[in-house]
């Protein structure tokens, strides 16, 4: 009986491994195809053979020659980095007030604030666009960054995180005469670092890939971000599937690197984001 159980257990484990490998292969196949196609000569992009007969790494150079791809890269990273810095700053300050400070009505205000997370972005887009037009921020870095510098989700996530820090820490600092700003800066922020990193990764990735807002805000070529640039590339040179795939590969490499490096923060962040407040 025991031996049979162990055998059954082994067979089950083996079946689980096979299933997971098949699923992993399905997840990765499109990426393999993309990478292989990015090295093909143009004449072979329609061939059923996924492998190039001759390898053409210069497709990657062609991307930079046909469109200002470096500029797109810079714009996306620059805008996403600014948004990330500002979101982490504004969210951590608000989260501190919602978790570590004691003031009348705190938790009611927090619940109300939380409820605003369900307001769909589409309801605010049109007035925000018109506001940007009025402020002459259409087609500017500021117009792309400032509206994305605040996040109810980020506040919520960091508040969850800061709630889990032991209250004795800031209490004893207070007794020692530390001011709220010092406690925030010297005690809470360092302890909340994993939460901050998690929020930073999420915010960076979200803004790096953002399409809707840049699409309506960007008019000049110099401000194009990667998603906008990729769409332009597709409409102008879409027939060159090999070069388009080279551009796509370069577009997603930073995301893959960021994900692999920051994996443990991802798992944590998704958990924190789902816990009810």
């Amino acid at each position: 009986m025991a031996a049979e159980n162990i055998k059954g257990e082994r067979a089950r484990k083996f079946a689980a491994h096979v299933t997971l490998w098949v699923l992993a292969a399905l997840s990765l196949l499109p990426f393999f195809w993309m990478v292989l196609t990015s090295f093909k000569p143009l004449a072979e992009v329609e061939s059923p053979n996924p492998f190039p007969t001759e390898w053409h790494p210069e497709n990657y150079r062609l991307v930079f020659e046909q469109v200002p791809f470096a500029r797109y890269y810079f714009n996306s990273v620059f805008i996403a980095a600014w948004c990330t810095f500002l979101v982490v700053l504004t969210s951590s300050m608000a989260a501190y007030a919602f978790s570590r400070l004691h003031w009348p009505g705190r938790d009611h205000v927090f619940r109300l604030y939380l409820a605003t997370m369900m307001i769909p972005g589409l309801v605010t887009t049109i007035p925000n666009f018109s506001l940007m037009v009025r402020l002459h921020l259409l087609d500017s870095y500021q117009g792309l960054i400032i509206p994305a510098a605040f996040s109810a989700f980020g506040t919520f996530m960091l508040r969850q995180f800061m709630m889990s820090i032991h209250p004795a820490l800031d209490e004893s600092a207070e007794v020692d005469g530390a001011r709220p700003w010092q406690i925030f800066w010297d005690i809470i922020l360092p302890l909340a670092r994993p939460g901050l990193v998690t929020l930073a990764i999420f915010t960076f990735m979200g803004n790096y890939g953002s399409l809707f807002w840049p699409l309506i805000m960007v008019k000049s070529e110099a401000l194009r971000t990667l998603p906008i640039g990729m769409m332009y590339f597709d409409s102008q040179y879409g027939r060159q599937t090999n070069v388009l795939m080279a551009a796509s590969v370069m577009n997603i490499v930073p995301l893959v690197v960021l994900f692999v490096v920051g994996q443990r923060f991802f798992v944590k962040g998704i958990m924190l984001g789902s816990v009810k407040g």
């Binding site: 997971l20 699923l23 992993a24 997840s27 990765l28 499109p30 990426f31 195809w33 993309m34 196609t37 990735m205 890939g209 399409l211 990667l226 998603p227 990729m230 769409m231 597709d234 599937t241 388009l244 795939m245 551009a247 796509s248 577009n251 997603i252 995301l255 893959v256 994900f259 692999v260 994996q263 991802f266």
Partner: peptide
């Protein structure tokens, strides 16, 4: 890690890939 990759990389680049 392998199974999560598709959801990390969603966006314009991956949609252009699927179009092809």
């Amino acid at each position: 890690t392998l199974l999560y990759l598709p959801s990390v990389t969603s966006g314009v680049a991956v949609m252009l890939l699927w179009k092809v």
